[in-house]
Simulated assay, not measured.
Amino acid sequence: MLVVPLVVGVALGGPVWAHVPLALLWFVGYFAFYAVGQWLRARFKKRWWPPVRAYSIAVVPCGVAVLLTAPELVVWVPAFVPLVVVSLWCSYQRRDRSLLNDGVTVLAASLMLLVAVDVAGPVDGRAWVVFALVLGYFLGTVLYVKTMIRERGSLGYRRASVAYHLVLALAGTGLVAWSGHGSVLLVGALLVALCVRTVVMPGRPATPLQVGLGEIAASVALTVVLLLPV
């Protein structure tokens, strides 16, 4: 979820040198965010303070480098701040596995696609279409993974996952067809395959590692499909 939006955004916008400090800020910033979240969840226990301090210090030069190479990106800060605040609040409340936290985290990660495009040029119609598909995909993984691990026996989650992916398949394919950005056949086939997966896989024995490897494969397939020339 960290890698795909950044890689797709860089590919869509075209790679430039300013993407290097942006990538550093993105990953170091995530490490700082994760450390702070764990610190809050642990109610400020001392053992979590060293990584909070280390990554918070490391993120400063990365942020300065981005401001120097791409100062126009400051306009994206208001979009990220409330999402980070909500997620950290969920960590403090020990609700970091909630749908609310998962949703805001997915949205923040997906927004990086638009930021990466913006570094190299204007955010055009294709970027917004691809952003919508990436966001839709990762929101779907929240439900699907829960049906495979934490909510394995929940019929409600399984129904919600199937319904969501069915809507995603129809809406995503329709969006590509309407916009003309992307291959309707390939996008449609991938989204249908993801929908079928939500019906077939839940209830089958699978370890978290196997589920994770499956998500990596699906993410790679999504990246390839979205970046193939029309």
Rank of each mutant, 00 (worst) to 15 (best):
W178Y: 13
M148H: 04
V117H: 04
L107Y: 00
L226H: 05
V85W: 02
R53P: 07
W76L: 12
L226M: 01
V64M: 11
D124W: 00
P5E: 12
D124A: 09
V74S: 14
V224N: 10
A65T: 11
D124Q: 11
Y30A: 10
V123I: 14
A65K: 10
S87L: 00
D102S: 14
L68Y: 04
P21V: 03
G156P: 00
I57A: 15
M201D: 06
M1Y: 03
V77D: 06
R159Y: 02
L67N: 13
V211P: 02
L68E: 11
V85P: 08
G103W: 04
C90F: 02
D102E: 14
L107S: 09
W17R: 14
N101D: 15
Y157F: 15
L155K: 14
G14P: 06
G203K: 15
Q93F: 00
Y30K: 07
F31A: 15
L168S: 08
W128I: 13
P208F: 01
A127W: 07
P78R: 02
G182F: 00
L186Q: 14
V129K: 09
V123T: 05
G121K: 11
G14K: 08
F80C: 08
V59F: 01
R41N: 07
E215C: 07
A132T: 09
A163K: 12
G203Q: 13
V77C: 02
L73V: 01
D124C: 00
L113F: 08
T141D: 07
V64P: 15
W128T: 09
Y144V: 04
A163S: 13
P208R: 06
A160W: 05
A221C: 12
S154L: 04
Q93W: 02
C90D: 15
T223E: 11
L114P: 05
A120G: 12
F31L: 14
A70L: 12
S56A: 11
V192C: 11
L209V: 03
V200K: 04
S183C: 04
Y34H: 15
Y55L: 10
R43C: 00
V59C: 07
L25F: 08
A32F: 13
L135M: 09
H165M: 03
A221H: 09
S87Q: 08
H165Q: 14
G212A: 03
K46Y: 00
V81Q: 13
R41D: 13
A58C: 00
C90K: 06
